[in-house]
């Protein structure tokens, strides 16, 4: 077996995915454009379509993004299949349009947003974030989205709201049955939800979010394990009590409410000290809070992170 260690290719010599995906993208976009011309506005939002000019963000990391192909063909989205290659193959199981997101619970202005309203709710930004999966692999993903805080401000959470629960779309007739207690749900403490790093993503690589990555709108919390980022959101619920998430129900000893990336707290069955960055050969050390400790550690001062894993 011949496995070559990475040679000394300068980062500047690496063809960026934007370029080498261009041919396919051109084909996809011209088809999408032709469709867009034929259909009323708002209906033709398909994966691969550009989201227009995006604001850069100081929260972006400078690491090289994982290839578009890897980001869109290797991920977990159990509703579309439990193998990591499944979601990209089963995109027809979820129709991302039309779409609405209901925000309810302990808020002064409960409201149902259409996806079109959500796209105009705040300036769309590109956020290049690290993504660390609880299984021990990681990526760097250029998300497109806006801070969850902008949405929360509009609905005016009440003082008693301590947590936000996120509920994903679930359709029994087309999606995976069993495995987890559907619909998929996740939760954040209200301060975590309001944190400027917490993103509602509507795209990646400058384009409309592909179905397999959680179209049309999903949560991204870069300092927590990837599964906290609930996909294809239909409901946000502000609550006083800590929500019990799908993974907490599935394995209370293995998945806690916080699920912050922490190299010192192992998963009961495997180590979390290192990770394999997709596209790299050697493993790298996992960073505390996935490298976002400076921004988020203060939210957990005084907490025993072994207990609140």
């Amino acid at each position: 077996m011949l496995i070559r260690r990475p040679t000394d290719i300068l980062p500047s010599e690496i063809t960026v995915p934007e370029l080498y995906h261009d041919r396919r993208r051109f084909l996809a976009q011209s088809t999408a454009l032709a469709l867009a011309a034929a259909l009323p506005a708002g209906v033709a939002r398909a994966a691969g379509q550009s989201l227009g000019p995006l604001a850069k963000s100081p929260y972006s990391v400078s690491e090289t993004p994982t290839s578009y192909k890897a980001v869109t063909t290797y991920n977990n989205f159990y509703e579309l299949g439990t193998d990591k290659a499944d979601p990209a193959e089963n995109t027809t199981r979820l129709r991302p349009a039309p779409w609405t997101l209901r925000v309810e619970g302990l808020v002064n202005k409960p409201r149902t947003f259409s996806i079109e309203e959500l796209l105009k709710l705040a300036p769309l930004e590109e956020r290049i974030y690290r993504m660390r999966c609880v299984e021990g692999w990681s990526m760097v993903i250029p998300w497109v989205g806006f801070p969850l805080a902008s949405l929360l401000k509009l609905v005016e959470p009440q003082g008693s709201a301590k947590y936000v629960e996120f509920v994903s779309h679930y359709d029994k007739s087309t999606m995976t049955r069993g495995v987890l207690d559907w619909p998929y749900n996740e939760g954040l403490r209200i301060d975590e939800a309001r944190h400027p790093l917490t993103l509602l993503a509507v795209g990646l690589y400058g384009q409309v979010l592909p179905v397999q990555n959680g179209a049309p709108i999903r949560l991204v919390v870069p300092w927590k394990y990837g599964f906290k980022g609930a996909k294809s959101l239909v409901t946000l619920r502000l609550t006083e009590k800590q929500p019990i998430t799908a993974w907490m129900k599935a394995g209370p000893s293995e998945y806690g409410f916080y699920s912050n990336v922490n190299p010192e707290v192992d998963h009961p069955r495997w180590s979390q000290a290192t990770e394999r960055r997709i596209g790299e050969f050697s493993k790298r050390k996992t960073l505390m809070f996935n490298g976002y400790a400076d921004q988020v550690a203060s939210m957990y001062t005084g907490m025993d992170l072994r207990r609140f894993f």
């Binding site: 077996m1 290839s67 192909k69 890897a70 063909t73 290797y74 990591k84 290659a85 692999w137 394999r276 997709i278 596209g279 050969f281």
Partner: peptide, 13 residues
């Protein structure tokens, strides 16, 4: 598959 990079995004896995 390994030589042709056809084992997916995480060939080692």
């Amino acid at each position: 598959g390994l030589e042709m990079d056809a084992l997916g995004a995480n060939p080692i896995e």
